[in-house]
Design a protein around this nucleic acid. Structure first.
Length: 580
RNA sequence: CGGGGAGUGGCGCAGUGGUAGCGCACCAGCUUUGGGUGCUGGCGGUCGGGGGUUCGAAUCCCCCCUCCCCGACCA
């Protein structure tokens, strides 16, 4: 039983000045956490309990799919990250330190290396697999800008797990098992969440999905269909392309004099003057970028074609091209290819110039465009894909807009913000290859192990749940992670009130109900009620005024519904409420 | 790294040159006991740091540091 008379807790009336998002304000005000340094927090007793409750659910579901708990150090010698290349690759985000002998160490931001090495040291036969391991551990990332309190810290607790399989089919199965486990975890924790497609990124895996909790304070932007269950983050999203046409179904292309029209706006205006009813959406904008493959030292030009009313989303491109680096081309890059006339670039000439050309899927086969004619002051109309030019490929390049159409069902998409709760990810052989994690197969031949990587932010889940459940009065926890089942308030100066409350508390505890008992003497009722609401335990029971009539009040924190229950029935009524 | 804002008791804030104050919290007493009760008296601060101007600096000048927000970044 937690007693407020002795609990290490001090609630605050005012929001902390440095807090912006609701979870941060409330977790501080209600005495769950205190800030120590940017992105670094201390957890007070109530916070520890809530965090532990989240961890318990995560453990149960990991164990249920046969994953086994291990624990790695956070302090790791440089060599291990040197071997994976991440001592250099991680950059400033890695916390680095030295021991007394001047040897380099790091505080682990994640543990792929250690999981891989551990398994390598123990297992060597195909008979040992499949295997799944996990840990719940503190991670360290020197974020450029920690923000939003607990939501993005430099020190945070994460459950990370890895699956090890000898075949891709095995990996698929392991991935599925983790995905299912994550669905159970987030459902049980009481989240409203979405599973969104993500890009697989640098690790070269084939599947990657994120679990996002929609919240205005979320820092991830994602796209969801207003009709079907399609959702993707903005880097991975696909949108419906327009109908294809027969490329021959258009008048022949014609070159037009369009002096001083290097931008889409000036071009549209000029076309109007020429008597054409051209909109920006009917023009084809060709943006010059440059790419560099990993290990290469030279940049290569890449031109991307998008409708003129759209911007190119570099982040989205980068996500798809990774590990190839992409950025805006500068004047010096353009200078290497005199055939590209700035402001008047058209795809008609790119093949001859041997410049790689990709189009957004919105530029469908058979579509006709007004675009550059590759000469100063010249544009061309009725330039048709499949007739007048053929791109080297398609890539989702345009900035997604609210109202774009779902690729699956054609309904409008909407853009929303979310908090990334978890990530499931087919890592593949990357780390197994780096560290030589293999197993002998039935024929005695070594096969490389294929891995999956799965993460849940435990401390972040606490804050995210606060974000999704708080109200104007304070926190409002789902029962499963609440620091207690019932917040029992004794109010009044009469000893009989406190005696009755003590009895009730003991009965509840005997019935297995977790009780937070406000047994403070000399604290006014208003203060106790406000504290109870701020702390956010789902059921509040009040022993006070009603005791004279032989009743105890039982109140639901969320709905505010309340009823008076005879003292004799109170324990049973609360047990029932709590077991709902 | 770019832009904006801010550093004054534990927390939230006021204080434009005269030697630091209010609210919350905390301690003592009285009061009050169903919505942060009221009154009285207390504890607690080298005003982010350094230098300068001045008889005198939280306040003016210079340099530095830190924090918050937006953006960039975030396997």
């Amino acid at each position: 039983m937690l007693r407020l008379s002795t609990l290490f807790l001090r609630t605050l009336r005012d929001d902390p000045a440095d807090a912006e998002v609701p979870s941060h304000k409330l977790l501080v005000r209600a005495g769950y956490v205190r800030r120590v340094a940017p992105g670094i927090y201390s957890w007070l007793p109530l916070g520890v309990i809530v965090q532990e409750n989240v961890a318990t659910v995560v453990r149960e579901e990991m164990n249920r799919i046969g994953s086994q708990e291990v624990h790695f150090p956070a302090l790791i010698p440089r060599e291990i990250f040197e071997e994976s290349g991440r001592w250099a690759a991680y950059g400033d985000t890695l916390f680095r330190l030295k021991d007394r002998k001047d040897v380099d160490y790091l505080l682990a931001p994640t543990h792929e290396e250690l999981f891989t090495l551990l398994v390598k040291g123990e297992y060597s036969s195909y008979k040992d697999y499949p295997l799944a391991l996990y840990q719940i551990q503190t991670k360290y990332r020197d974020e450029a800008r920690p923000r939003a309190g607990i939501l993005r810290g430099r020190e945070f607790v994460m459950k990370d797990s890895y699956s090890f399989d000898i075949s891709h089919e095995g990996l698929e199965k392991s991935y599925r098992a983790h995905r299912d486990a994550y669905e159970r975890i987030f459902s049980r924790l009481g989240f409203d969440y979405r599973i969104v497609f993500a890009v697989s990124g640098a690790m070269g895996g084939s599947a990657s999905e994120e679990f996002l909790a929609p919240a205005p304070s979320g820092e991830d932007t994602f796209v969801q269909c207003t009709n079907c269950d399609y959702a993707a983050n903005t880097e991975a999203v696909e949108i419906a392309a327009p109908q294809r046409h027969d490329p021959q179904d258009h008048p022949p292309q014609q070159v037009l004099d369009t002096p001083d029209t290097p931008t889409i706006d000036t071009l549209v205006e000029r076309m109007r003057d020429l008597g054409h009813d051209t909109t920006a959406a009917a023009t084809l904008k060709n943006v010059v970028l440059r790419t560099r493959a990993p290990g290469a030292d030279a940049w290569e030009l890449l031109v991307v074609g998008v409708p003129g009313d759209r911007e190119v989303d570099l982040k989205r491109l980068a996500g798809q091209l990774e590990p190839v680096v992409v950025e805006q081309a500068g004047p010096e890059d353009l200078a290497t290819q005199p055939g590209l006339v700035k402001g008047y670039i058209g795809p008609q000439a790119l093949a001859d110039l041997k410049v790689r050309y990709l189009v957004d899927p919105l530029v469908v086969e058979g579509s006709a465009w007004v675009t550059g004619a590759n000469a100063e002051g010249k544009h061309a109309a009725d330039v048709v894909r499949g007739r007048d030019f053929t791109p080297d490929g398609e890539i989702g390049a345009v900035e997604i807009r609210d109202g774009d159409r779902c690729a699956r069902c054609g309904s409008p998409l909407e853009i929303a913000r979310g908090i990334e709760l978890g990530h499931v990810f087919q890592l593949g052989e990357t780390y197994a290859k780096t560290f030589g994690l293999t197993a002998l197969d039935q024929n005695g031949k070594p096969v490389t192990i294929t891995m999956g990587s799965y993460g849940v932010g435990v401390t972040r889940a606490v804050a995210a749940l606060a974000e999704q459940t708080f109200d104007e009065k304070g926190l409002c926890w789902p029962r499963i992670i609440s620091p207690a089942d019932v917040h029992l308030v004794a109010t009044g100066k009469d000893d009989t009130v406190f005696a009755a409350a003590e009895t009730l508390a003991a009965e509840l505890e005997a019935a297995g109900v977790r009780v937070l008992f406000d047994d403070r003497r000399g604290v006014s009722p208003g203060v106790k009620f406000k504290d109870a609401e701020l702390i956010g335990v789902p059921t509040i029971a009040i022993v006070g005024k009603g005791l004279a009539d032989g009743t105890i009040e039982v109140r639901d924190r969320k709905s505010d519904e309340c009823r008076d229950v005879p003292v004799a029935d109170a324990a049973q009524a609360i047990v029932t409420a709590v077991r709902d």
